[in-house]
Design a protein around this nucleic acid. Structure first.
Lengths: 201, 201
DNA sequence: AAATAAAGATACAGATCTGTTACTTATTGT
DNA sequence: ACAATAAGTAACAGATCTGTATCTTTATTT
């Protein structure tokens, strides 16, 4: 293996194991065995196990949000439709055979102290996802984009949690139907956007 | 301490520590130190750590569902209102200074294999909570009580997950507003129940 | 090609983990 | 009061954990 690839490979391996077995239950020895590297190599790339966890979460955070953005942009152009299509992205995650719940929620569940860096990494990811929903809700010209985004976010989290236990993808579809219903009821309060040049004044 | 109280006391201590620190991060030595008992005593009451976890989860399952039932019955009599008042019960949980997320979701997050007894205990709790929502939705005479119950359940889980990260109680209120909105839209499909004796022959 | 740096292999330190054993002390039921 | 049971104490076994040290081998860079 080329040196420059080792770090990425270790992050891949660690993420897979953290997802499969959890953080405390995944030892360094297992990570290096599965990764096919020596312990000294791992500790040259990451100072501590916590550093490895943080690097893995950061990588997953970026990958995941980029993938969601790409999915949304490729599958919907209407702003309201884009808010709803995020649930289809969620569904693809749930259909992954390796799906075992949201790794950030699990990370926060195993590192419950809000001052713990791992907890804060999970918190940051959720903050950024929420910010993306706000971006979409703003583009859709809802009167209260922050509230709409928080509602979409809560439905996402609910679907995640139910799917974590049931291991089926249906919660994503159910959450989408609920979101659809709620957004329909909000339509009356959306700002005029279809006729921006012909509006009042 | 009287013998008959030791088992309960150990379950209390274990539950508190599992909630505060997680399952893998809570060692037997810490449980007996905080519980003020000898290790031999703990192992006379519970064969293994897993048995202790299972007993703790079973106890919490029963306590929690009984508390929710009691709260609902004391604070609402109208069947639809009862579905909504469950979110107020949730809010009281979130306001607990010791709140760190749903211990059953955390348990499933640390024991991800669906055949693992701890995972299955979490699964069972969620199943029973869902069954209670179905009971309430049925009493409220909704046309599709199972779907309504699943929606309420998804909102509960969403509120739990958001509150786990944000550590505020607002998600409970937001979920309640969303549930209220969704149930209002379902009212037209409810079966006649206010005039049960005057219905069509 | 030689110098430099990283990777591999291996053993180990020191802590912590679950669970057991041996023995003493206290509590309970008859 | 006495016999039986359980609790306390303390040491320990054996495994596993994170992280380090030593040394050899491989790969990269100049």
């Amino acid at each position: 293996m080329r040196r420059s690839e080792i770090r990425d490979h270790l992050l891949d391996t660690a993420l897979r194991l953290f997802n499969q077995r959890g953080y405390h239950a995944t030892g360094i020895d297992l990570i290096i065995a599965e990764g096919g590297v020596a312990k000294t190599t791992l500790y040259r790339h990451f100072e501590t196990k916590e550093d490895l966890i943080l690097a893995a979460l950061e990588r997953r955070d970026e990958e995941d949000r980029a993938a969601m953005r790409a999915f949304v942009e490729q599958n919907a152009s209407d702003p309201v439709e884009r808010l709803l299509i995020t649930f289809d992205y969620l569904e693809t995650s749930f259909n992954d055979k390796q799906f075992r719940g949201c790794i950030f929620v699990s990370a926060a569940g195993e590192h419950k102290d809000p001052t713990n860096p791992v907890f804060r990494a999970a918190e940051m990811h959720k903050r950024l996802v929420l910010a993306y929903f706000e971006e979409l809700a703003h583009a859709a010209r809802f009167a209260e984009p922050k509230r709409i985004a928080a509602e979409i976010n809560l439905l996402h989290e609910g679907a995640f949690a139910v799917a974590q236990i049931t291991r089926i993808a249906e919660p994503a579809r159910q959450a989408k139907r609920m979101a659809s219903q709620l957004l329909a009821a909000e339509q009356h309060s959306r700002l005029a956007s279809l006729t921006p040049e012909r509006g009042p004044a």
